[in-house]
Write a protein that binds this DNA or RNA. Structure first.
Lengths: 334, 334
DNA sequence: CCCCAGACTGCAAACGTTTTCATTGCCATG
DNA sequence: CATGGCAATGAAAACGTTTGCAGTCTGGGG
């Protein structure tokens, strides 16, 4: 009921100037201990909390960061948020989250809205940093930003080395005896990660003298996808292992294979990329290239905060590692 | 570089008063078409966007909603966010998200921070609405709020009927021939949902003349949990079906059972509660009581917006439904 | 020709802070 | 006793908007 009193009201209650009340909260050491206590106690009594809107306007700083992610339906991004939130909180910042659903128009609009709210910096994942309207607008806005998951030479970014990571997985599969692989991804236009992972897999296969992996792009859980999978397996040289460019997709593929009567890994090996927590709970557990999503969020946030503090933010390449789950086995086991 | 120009600067560029520029954006119909165009075009040329901080301060409305959830690691809450974000966006609102990690202190602090940012309303999920410090503070703040997932008689909330939903699942299990059930939950103190689900299961079992379900509370993925599960299965009358109070837990339990050499559903049936998208991708697919998480977020947001518009927000009980996945079968099948 | 109703625009006061610059005592120093 | 320095506080301007009120035109009706 008692709609929040203002600093001024507290001031006149106590009988001091607004400036003094402000100082009681921001520079308490400047005040006479007695006045400070007097102010703090009546502030509490009245239920006063400093209004950040006023404060932001005057100080020019909102202490808010923007986070722009494709979707929270992918636990990877959810983890990224939590990492970023943690780091932001530690620094006294709040975060304003928006999702784009992989839609570039929504992305542009959301970024604009975030800027309108005067976030001091932005962490975001775009389809392709080399060609992004959003990044263009952002650049000319002067608001610092850090890319998460994307890899770029021209912008600060925090990610794993997607090419190397994919190559590692291909090596691992080859070591198990697999030769013909397939790489399954979503639409490449929606994710530079998928592009890099595919490139890494291809390059590694070539180095190892494997036949080039077959690339299959699944649109969005349409019936056509099911057909494409069937077709892939009916090829003259069907792959013995499916490398999916993300864990969610891997899970979907495994489920799809099950409906086709194929068992993983007995009939075919499958692996993913991301390392979502959930993969470890699957039975068998999902083999996958793990990336430290929480840390990606955390470090992206730290770099952003660094930029806000004047230090330039540097790109960080975080380590990935293979999780050798039960969905991979040597080809042709009983 | 060009740090955002202000409305005033646009005004003097165009040679009109700030008021006119303001109107060009908010009440364009009031302006002479020519002036309007002149303003809009120079505004665009200068890269001007109205500063929401100034606007919020003057108008007293931030057009921002707060969302306070336990964790995004549970995809249920992620879906809730996306639903809420959608509804908020439709109404021209932004959302500020914070997570609590099921920690009541973090919860209190986060709520306070949200209020400090002057969100106009709050959507939140608390441990127990009947006894929540956060809700207390919120109440005296005068900021409208809507509970999501929680059930309460004293506060507006959007949820399923957890008791009835759990009862439905128990009926289903009984119909399959199960008699001795176990209910597995997280710490009851952290979730009134778990409490209600347990109560619903118990009541239904009694009605149907089944022996009372055994309740097992798993703390947080500790080694002790594994022991508790083992112990449960070694009981004189071991349960033939495990009803987990959420899907994430169900997945963990299934993984745990696998390490104990038990197959689901051949050796034991398992089911969950939530209906996270992921469950359908598991092999076998996870039987579960589904709740419409996205809609919960969406409706919670709508109710909140209603409150902001003066209409009182009403509690909504959304429908649940059983997803009869492959993790349940009649007891004692080969 | 006068008057009045629009239509359009400007003035200036808010909104709740922060912060620079002064002001006031007061005490110690010379 | 004058001086200077320090500690504690206040006055007032500024941040970028919105908005009630008042002002200026224009044109049409009487």
């Amino acid at each position: 009921m008692a709609s929040r009193p203002s600093l001024t009201q507290v001031a006149e209650q106590v009988g001091v100037s607004p400036a003094t009340v402000s100082r009681a909260f921001n520079r308490p050491e400047l005040l006479n201990a007695a006045t400070r206590e007097r102010i703090l106690s009546t502030a509490k009594r009245l239920g006063f909390r400093p209004n950040k809107v006023g404060s932001s306007l005057r100080s020019g700083s909102t202490r808010t960061l923007g986070l722009l992610l494709p979707t929270l339906a992918n636990p990877v991004f959810a983890a990224c948020f939590e990492g970023a939130e943690m780091a932001a909180l530690d620094a006294g910042y709040s975060v304003m989250l928006a999702t784009t659903g992989y839609d570039s128009e929504r992305e542009r609009l959301a970024a604009r809205s975030l800027l309108d709210h005067r976030v001091e910096g932005l962490i975001l994942t775009v389809a392709d940093p080399a060609d992004s309207a959003t990044l263009g607008e952002l650049g000319s806005s002067g608001v610092p930003f850090v890319l998460a998951y994307n890899e770029s030479d021209c912008h600060p970014c925090v990610s794993v080395d997607n090419r190397a990571a994919a190559a590692d997985m291909v090596s691992h599969l080859a070591a198990q005896g697999h030769r013909q692989l397939a790489m399954i991804s979503g639409p490449l236009a929606a994710s530079d990660r998928a592009v890099h992972r595919l490139a890494g897999a291809m390059a590694c296969a070539e180095t190892l003298g494997l036949p080039p992996p077959i690339h299959v792009s699944m649109s969005r859980h349409t019936a056509a996808d099911r057909g494409r999978l069937k077709e892939l397996l009916a090829a003259p040289q069907p792959p013995s292992a499916l490398f999916c460019s993300n864990d969610l997709l891997a899970a979907a593929v495994i489920a799809e294979l099950a409906t086709l009567g194929l068992r993983v890994p007995d009939d075919i090996s499958v692996c993913g990329f991301d390392g979502m927590d959930f993969g470890a709970l699957m039975v068998p557990s999902l083999a996958s290239v793990h990336q430290p999503s929480t840390d990606i969020g955390k470090h992206a946030c730290r770099e952003l905060l660094a930029a806000l503090a004047g230090r330039p933010s540097r790109s960080r390449r975080l380590p990935h590692w293979l999780f050798d789950g039960g969905t991979i086995t040597a080809p042709g086991s009983p």
